[in-house]
Design a protein around this nucleic acid. Sequence first.
DNA 1: AAGTGGTCTAGACCACCGT
DNA 2: CGGTGGTCTAGACCACTTC
Lengths: 236, 236
Amino acid sequence: MAPKYKQVAEQIETDIVNHVYQHTNKLLTEDEYATKYDISRNTVRKAIEILVNKGYVYQVQGSGVFVRDHYNSDYVNLEKLQGLTSDFSGRKVETRPLAFEQTTANEEVAERMKCPVGTPVYYVKRLRLVDDHPFSVEDSYFRKSLVVYLDENIIRKSIYNYLRNDQKLAIGFADRVIYADFLKAEDAVLLELKENDPALLVDNTVYLTNGQIFDVSRATHHFKHVKMLKVSNIKS
Amino acid sequence: MAPKYKQVAEQIETDIVNHVYQHTNKLLTEDEYATKYDISRNTVRKAIEILVNKGYVYQVQGSGVFVRDHYNSDYVNLEKLQGLTSDFSGRKVETRPLAFEQTTANEEVAERMKCPVGTPVYYVKRLRLVDDHPFSVEDSYFRKSLVVYLDENIIRKSIYNYLRNDQKLAIGFADRVIYADFLKAEDAVLLELKENDPALLVDNTVYLTNGQIFDVSRATHHFKHVKMLKVSNIKS
DNA sequence: AAGTGGTCTAGACCACCGT
DNA sequence: CGGTGGTCTAGACCACTTC
């Protein structure tokens, strides 16, 4: 059972996507939502906060909450970690496994995973395509003691859905380091580009809620097809 | 007068940076902070939420709030918009003005600023250096009707501090689109790289609290010296 | 002045972690 | 089981926008 504020956030998000507020671009007031859903104003505010963080709306004190012009599906939204499928809903998203093996952490992986060299890990390499265009190549390592089981069937689909739903893994937070570099020859072939073209790289480190690292990955993105979007509020 | 939750967040942040929690890596409990600062638990939670979003700490239900290993000063943290000076505190940050003029929006700028072609704007081009290494080249346009005044002296320092503190401009939120491309010849010279090397680009659109766009910019970053960090929680 | 979002409180109860 | 974070409430008062 999801908490109320999440349910309400999803409700309002659906309304936004369905252009319910199109005439004025303005949401209902907080008091109106409180009455509508029979919840307290603070719960309404928590719901709206989620939408603010996702970049759907902005708040103006004394005035209201307004819908933003939003970037439909050309960007990878850095606020939504669920992966490509949610960013590119309505488009064809495909995953091609390129490698899958059980091995042990070499020095580089051990350093990124903060574990000893030789720790057992799963290695997965996958090519992702959107609308039949190569999108990114992804090298992932999963710590075997934490993910317990993986197979070739699972990695064709969403590894994360499997870990969350079937393995009940409590995924907590993630760091992503974003940078540019020369495209390696091996990846150039897969992305249908040339060696030493630019590449947009993202190094991921994913933690369980208790702070343990269970996954590190590096995604090499097609520089022409991939742009990342970060929305920010000037608070904090 | 900053709100309590912000003040407390800054207090705790200072404590973290000064290694006050180093022995256990664990913050005080929410109740302890509530007593310590004589505030309600909800206010403590708002303060801690800020630190979570900045990537300083993570929360474990039933257990406590823990300090993360943090990435001292090698990354541009996408959660902190204040600019380079705060990301690279303790390092030499320099800004060299390359161009400053009053002009009008051409088609590209008008499109990005969602304003008519011909709208009066300030154009600013600056080179940023960190520890004497070229870091990025930045092309910015400011909508003249909203920023009112700028001069060559201001753009040497922090334009944003000036707009916020002296002009009392209410800066609200920003979009950043991050991507990779070939480095242009003109920027290669400034960054001491070669034409067609990779470049890490960031297109910025900055809004006032009322939703008006007052600044658009494009930063071309040195691919070897710049990495961006995004920390995320798996909530929302 | 009325409307609407922003801050803050005090307290209740639940969910999860550890002993 | 006790400790600690997560959700939620009802209400007060402030700050800003709009008319």
